[in-house]
């Protein structure tokens, strides 16, 4: 199938915590909710475990958008992992924006184990947003820079 006549299908990577959002996504599935299939879910023990480098690596490997999701504040399985993560993302987001990386492509959200419908909505919204923004060619062009130079 050629992609030329088709709508752009964004590639989304979701970094989610095991205890809330992963269970929420599971609930969306068992509730037979339909949502966009563009998302690849990566399960982590906690949002506190989601290293900021993972987000950069996702962009490097061709993601057009990223979802980061975990337990609502005060609901963390490990008490404070999401509080620490929240601070980290505040700082990280500011730095990325200052460096000119498109922070609109990273969606941060809290989805509990009971919010299957919210998860489906988040994915659909993210896919629609990223579809409007288009592929993240800016980042991909520098990601393959070394290979291009090596091929010269």
């Amino acid at each position: 199938m050629s992609e030329t006549n088709q709508e752009f299908e964004p590639r989304i990577v979701a970094f989610v915590c095991n205890w809330c959002t992963y269970a929420g996504a599971d609930l969306a599935g068992t509730s037979r909710l339909k949502y966009a299939t563009n998302v690849k879910i990566v399960r982590f023990p906690c949002t506190g475990r989601i290293d900021f480098m993972l987000l950069l690596k996702a962009f490097e490997e061709g993601a057009d958008g990223i979802i980061v999701s975990g337990c609502h504040p005060n609901d963390c399985h490990y008490t404070s992992g999401n509080f620490h993560a929240r601070r980290r993302w505040t700082v990280f987001r500011g730095l990325l924006d200052f460096m000119g990386i498109d922070v609109r492509r990273i969606h941060f959200t809290w989805v509990s184990a009971a919010e299957g419908a919210k998860w489906a909505d988040i994915v659909n919204e993210t896919v629609a947003d990223i579809r409007a923004l288009g592929p993240y060619d800016e980042y991909k062009s520098i990601a393959s820079n070394f290979e291009k130079e090596a091929a010269k």
């Binding site: 504040p73 005060n74 509080f83 620490h84 601070r87 993302w89 505040t90 941060f108 988040i122």
Partner: peptide, 16 residues
């Protein structure tokens, strides 16, 4: 340090 401490009411206007 900033990243190894937190307050429950830290603002989160970018998290939906």
């Amino acid at each position: 340090n900033v990243l190894s401490s937190f307050k429950p009411d830290d603002k989160e206007n970018f998290i939906h």
